[in-house]
């Protein structure tokens, strides 16, 4: 059966159409779902795409966290459903405490927009189950606040439990331990700074993001 994906959109989200297009390309049904929705019945996968939800006011993701849809996202996640946050979506997931840590301003204080090489560190996440451990992917990043930080205890836990999903080969933003993406303890909730939807077609220069989206959509109802 075709996987049904809800691509959640907030005021200021701007990667939703690219994300839908990339998901359609791999054979998923993907709907744009506005943030005032309170129920997400019928969806197999949730994606919180990139952008600037609520203009990044206060802190990126801080206000989106209180959108009506987030209660349903929490319920979906705690039931084991795959929830992926890309870039601003990652920021929303940390603000909502669905993932630990926080994303600070890049150490360079510069907006970074370029392709980076990231290594797959675990295949026990909903985003990497079809990838190989150690596989290197070339995927664009596009952010000002991608500098992942957390306290030492959390960092130790993330490493010990193999919850670092992607790691930069050359750290572009100052993230602790070169972290580009992490998951929760069940592996179903994943946040990453790189944009797999922007590496989903030869025309875009890379198709390395497809393996991540295909992993995500390999769930069936």
């Amino acid at each position: 059966m075709t996987t049904r994906v809800a691509v959640l959109t907030f005021p200021g989200t701007n990667c939703e159409f690219d994300t839908v297009k990339a998901l359609n390309r791999i054979g998923c049904d993907a709907d744009l779902v506005w943030h005032d929705t309170r129920q997400l019945n019928g969806y197999d996968v949730l994606v919180i795409p990139g952008g600037f939800s609520y203009g990044d006011y206060l802190r990126p993701g801080a206000i989106a966290r209180f959108s009506p849809v987030m209660q349903a996202v929490e319920e979906f996640a705690s039931a084991g459903g795959p929830v992926i946050g890309i870039c601003n979506g990652f920021q929303v997931l940390t603000e909502a405490h669905l993932l630990p840590g926080a994303l600070q301003k890049n150490i360079s204080l510069r907006f970074v927009c370029r392709s980076v090489r990231v290594k797959v560190e675990t295949v026990r996440s909903s985003l990497t189950r079809m990838a190989s451990k150690g596989q290197v992917l070339s995927i664009p990043i596009n952010h000002f606040e991608g500098n992942f930080t957390c306290d030492d205890t959390t960092l130790e836990m993330l490493e010990e439990e193999e919850r670092v999903v992607l790691r930069y080969e050359n750290n572009p933003n100052g993230s602790v331990n070169d972290i580009a993406g992490i998951c929760n303890s069940m592996g179903n909730v994943v946040g990453i700074m790189p944009h797999p939807e922007r590496a989903s077609d030869e025309m875009l220069g890379s198709t390395d993001g497809l393996i991540l989206l295909e992993s995500l959509c390999s769930v069936s109802r």
Partner: peptide, 8 residues
């Protein structure tokens, strides 16, 4: 709840 992120 909102003004500060207690993580950082």
């Amino acid at each position: 709840k909102l003004l500060a992120n207690p993580v950082i």
